[in-house]
Simulated scan of single mutants.
Amino acid sequence: MLRHLIAVALIVAPFSLPAEPGRSVTGQSQQSDAALFSDQGYRIDRYRSPTPATVAGATTVSTADLERLMDQHPDLVIIDVINLEYRHGRFLEDKPHLAVPGAHWLPNTGRGQLDEPWLSYLLDNVQALTEGNRDRPVAVLCKSDCWLSWNATRRLADHGYRQLFWYKDGIDSWQNAGMPTEPAQPVMPRFDINPTASEG
């Protein structure tokens, strides 16, 4: 009888494998988080997920803040970095893109890993829009919970722009607040080669 009870207890009792030496659940989580970022600290995966409250080198702004900036700074440059598939020298649009009024749409520039043509596309356009003045105010956005604008903002900070504003809540929050929008067209690249970029 005792032998039977012991056998039943062994079947019912939960068991777990011993932890691999040197690894813990916390360690595994940290390794997983690290895989989401490049060596330069840009987010490279899971772009639509909760973002931090701030980005180094920029001021995080709300919808009301952005509206106020637009009123107070007519020279504010607004950059929209929502992705759009680009193949064989053209962007593939299947529906109109509504943007904050006056925004300049530079798709695919918020990726964590940019090859040289896309990096130049971002930097050359922002330089032209700011007329080479790195103290001119620049606001960057995509959607809510989107790392693309976080990456692009940080990249501009890394390239010397000093008056940066990150609209963390993005175009969907702008629309939900009843703010005006207008259709935007992507700024066409002038690539010497034809890189491709898929929506992500």
Rank of each mutant, 00 (worst) to 15 (best):
I82P: 01
R68I: 01
N133K: 07
Q185P: 02
S198A: 14
L98D: 15
A152K: 02
T59W: 03
P189S: 03
G110T: 07
P50C: 04
L148P: 08
R111A: 13
E85Y: 00
C146Y: 01
D135V: 05
C142A: 11
L10W: 13
V126M: 00
D75A: 12
H104L: 10
G57Y: 08
L129V: 07
P101S: 08
G178Y: 02
A197M: 04
L156Q: 07
D75K: 11
G102Y: 06
V77Q: 05
E199P: 00
L123P: 02
L114I: 11
Y47A: 02
W174S: 08
A152M: 10
K143A: 15
R136F: 08
L76N: 04
A7R: 15
N83K: 06
A58C: 09
P101T: 05
I171S: 11
I171A: 13
A9I: 12
F191G: 02
P18E: 14
C142W: 01
D145K: 14
V100I: 15
W150M: 01
L17C: 11
E199F: 12
S29W: 10
S29V: 12
R46W: 11
L141T: 11
A58S: 13
E20G: 08
Y47K: 02
E182F: 03
G112V: 11
N133A: 06
W150C: 07
Q72K: 15
V81G: 03
T59D: 13
E199N: 12
A197L: 00
T54W: 10
G41C: 07
K168F: 03
T63R: 12
A103C: 07
L2N: 11
M70V: 12
S38K: 00
H4V: 12
W174M: 05
S38V: 04
D192Y: 03
R43G: 01
S24Y: 07
G110L: 08
S38T: 05
M70R: 15
Q40I: 02
C146E: 06
L148A: 09
Y167G: 04
R154Y: 04
T109Q: 06
L84Q: 11
R87D: 07
R190N: 15
P189Q: 04
Q127L: 10
R162M: 07
L106G: 04
A7V: 13
G178C: 01
P180D: 05
F91T: 01
E93N: 05
H159I: 09
V140L: 09
A34P: 03
A34K: 09
L122M: 06
S62V: 05
V126S: 04
S144E: 15
L123R: 08
L106H: 06
Q31K: 09
G178K: 01
Q127N: 14
Q175F: 04
